[in-house]
Write a protein that binds this DNA or RNA. Structure first.
Lengths: 213, 213
DNA sequence: GCATAAACGTGATTAATCCTCACATTTGCA
DNA sequence: TGCAAATGTGAGGATTAATCACGTTTATGC
């Protein structure tokens, strides 16, 4: 886990390569950098987050920051990757082994609620996934994450409806999942009450689709 | 129309006010600025669009540009507003007067196809609505646009299902519409073939919801 | 025609930021 | 102990959005 979230993976993006922290000392510093970035994003949003501020709050120089993160987006990317890794294990656990409609219904409903509460409560997640569309690397991360989660869902669907075309089920699962993320983003951007209604409506819509013959 | 798209409306945003073009001369210049911006966005994306480049290509000074647009986002906003105004009239026309399920089905299906083709064909639209989430003013514009379009749709639904709770129908229409925009954004960001499948799946899902008892 | 105010036009300059780089320091290890 | 690699530093380069003081054009009243 500490390994997976290592910022070196941010190289996948585009910028010049950066060293991965190999010493204990620097690993701790990188943690401080991420923590500082997280705090600043929570306070002002990732757009207003200044690299100098991150460095200052982490107690490192701006140069050290750039030693481990090729650019500003890489920091955000690293935070996003942690969240996706964490949530993916939750989701796989919640959907594992389900093979009847009732359990799918309750598990899915609960999953949506958990996600919704998470989005409402965590300003950092909200900020990062709001800006997703603007950043190619983040978008790719979200797509990959979504595909992975949709796979758990389509696995359940295939068990529930063995006669149906598997490819169609996969498309359905992916779409339902993406619609869910969009519904969350929408729900948190409107009044709380309307958001609740929208999430409920999404649940109905998604379940109707998932449980349809 | 020329009036509605006037960049003075960009004042609604946040930046310092700017003069609205009142002379013929300046109105033509503003058109040139918007055209230049549109071309640059089509070529390189709005992020890479430089204000100096816009001015140069429009044949005006950077100062003139800022005389009519308080900031960079205002230009993009003005372009976005034109597109929304244009599409809204199309949508209202397509959905007007529908009061039976068959016609709703065919009209909705056609509308989705039109939108999808538009997104595929117009790089400017694609760019602007991709970056929507990152910009508050654009997000508001899209939300308002979506609400307006959803209203056309919910009007149809209310005629189709007079016994149903109107508030629920409104929420459904809004959600279906937003899901549609999200589906479009998703579809154009993946391989063409998968995009087609996703749009088709969205259509099925949306129509199932819209025509449900 | 003339005067005057308002609208318009200009581009060098300012300000804010991301990011680099030449050099100093610390750590792991033979 | 000594050296190579890793790590740390922060002044400064580079980019670019946005300003502003001043010059020019247009509309309008007489």
């Amino acid at each position: 886990m500490e390994d997976a979230a290592t910022p070196v993976s941010a190289q996948k993006q585009a910028a010049s390569p950066r060293r991965a922290p190999s010493q204990q000392r620097s690993r701790e510093r990188v943690e401080r950098m991420l923590a500082a970035a997280s705090a600043l994003i929570a306070e002002q949003g990732s757009d207003a987050m200044r690299m100098g501020e991150v460095a200052e709050r982490a107690g490192v120089s701006i140069g050290s920051l750039y030693q481990f993160f090729p650019d500003k987006r890489a920091i955000i990317w690293a935070l996003a990757e942690r969240y996706t890794a964490e949530s993916q294990s939750c989701i796989s656990a919640a959907l594992a082994g389900i093979s009847d409609a009732e359990r799918l219904q309750s598990a899915f409903s609960e999953l949506v609620d958990i996600y919704y509460r998470l989005f409402l409560a965590e300003p950092v997640i909200r900020d990062i996934w709001s800006g997703t569309q603007a950043d190619k690397a983040l978008r790719q991360l979200e797509l990959a994450d979504s595909r992975a989660n949709a796979e758990f869902l389509s696995a359940v669907l295939k068990r529930l409806r063995p006669a149906a075309d598997p490819a169609t089920l996969e498309t359905t699962a992916f779409l339902v999942w993406q619609m869910g993320e969009a519904a969350m983003r929408l729900a948190i951007s409107v009044e709380r009450q309307e958001g609740d209604r929208l999430v409920a409506a999404y649940k109905r819509m998604a379940l109707r689709e998932l449980l349809a013959e």
